[in-house]
Design a protein around this nucleic acid. Sequence first.
DNA 1: TTGTTCATCAGGGATGACCCCGGTTCCGTG
DNA 2: CACGGAACCGGGGTCATCCCTGATGAACAA
Lengths: 216, 216
Amino acid sequence: MSVRVFLVDDHALFRAGVRAELDTITDEVEVIGEAGSVGEAVAGIAHHKPDVVLLDVHMPDGGGAEVLRQIRTKIPEVTFLALSVSDAAEDVINVIRAGARGYVTKTISSQELVRAVVRVSEGDAVFSPRLAGFVLDAFADRPGAAPISDPELDLLTPRERDVLRLLARGYAYKEIASELFISVKTVETHVSSVLRKTQLSNRYELSRWATDRRLV
Amino acid sequence: MSVRVFLVDDHALFRAGVRAELDTITDEVEVIGEAGSVGEAVAGIAHHKPDVVLLDVHMPDGGGAEVLRQIRTKIPEVTFLALSVSDAAEDVINVIRAGARGYVTKTISSQELVRAVVRVSEGDAVFSPRLAGFVLDAFADRPGAAPISDPELDLLTPRERDVLRLLARGYAYKEIASELFISVKTVETHVSSVLRKTQLSNRYELSRWATDRRLV
DNA sequence: TTGTTCATCAGGGATGACCCCGGTTCCGTG
DNA sequence: CACGGAACCGGGGTCATCCCTGATGAACAA
């Protein structure tokens, strides 16, 4: 049984090209519909329920990511393969974060595209090699982007950091006290120091601050 | 010029096998050192400065992720390829989050392993096909894991949801009140209803609950 | 020895969070 | 019409949070 593909791209000529290539090359894939805008795409996908959507990233009205957002909540079983001229990290990350299962550039050959569509339909993730690295960079704890040292964080004493960690997780003073075997008053002292040093005013801002710095 | 590989695995027999295979098959890769524990690995990698580290995920003293953490801050130019018997999503995500640039299982053939090492050394990300999906699932805004409808969420009235959204962002009651043009007392009423309906006890748990359901 | 930092703890007070009680209006349904 | 749900508001209470002042001992450096 062939993979049923829906094509989304704002250039009709490009759609025609892909359709011709995919239909003639092989019977593994079958183009069952296409759309040239976000609105058409959402309606068409909802109607045809394809196995795989070949999705252009750059389109008016929000681009491919917008299509993904509207469809995924409604029809989560549809998988998306992004197909774009762009090889920018930002584009890749955005569309993957929105839920695409792969990303290939339009420089791909027809044979490779067929292979990519089939693999995505089988649940694999497909990337042009260099692009997968972008996702990993964004996913990993960035070494360069989020440096370990921090002017304000360095001011904190070890014990203050202990308290901060628990505080950021939502522990009450009482709980922090029994966890660290100290009195509630001591916890208050540490919290006060932390708040003063970080220039923050309450535990909720602190919680955000700490999670941003990956202290939790 | 060949790719200089460092081998980390707590089983000496396995290391010997990989070393023999890699050294005899091709001259594209060259094993320049190996280690059987986290400590040895960190020291050996710092000393040899290999191009690629082949890293076992499951080891005493913290496993591969621990090696990653200790090395990446010191020698960021070393790339890591995880090599594991496990194909569990949790293992894959942990080691990728720690900074590995690829993950292959030990069922891989020698030829494929060589190819994977070379690709990783060139900056590509390499995955056994099915495993890449785990990373994407963890990275994307999960659709299946966090379904849209929720028995408790459905109980909330629209106004309660308004209050919840602001509350989850750390707003004080006073701020919520002026934001929604209602009195602090009304905010209290709504918060009480939300806490009762969600079976939670304070605003911090509520904040977590809301972010899990992407209400923020 | 003296000074500094850290960690520990206390009293007291102001404000906020949360609960329980009460009330009103509006609106839709049986 | 009567009833219930929603949104709205109050009084009064308990407890947590946060700030202030002030104190002790230990560790460490000048």
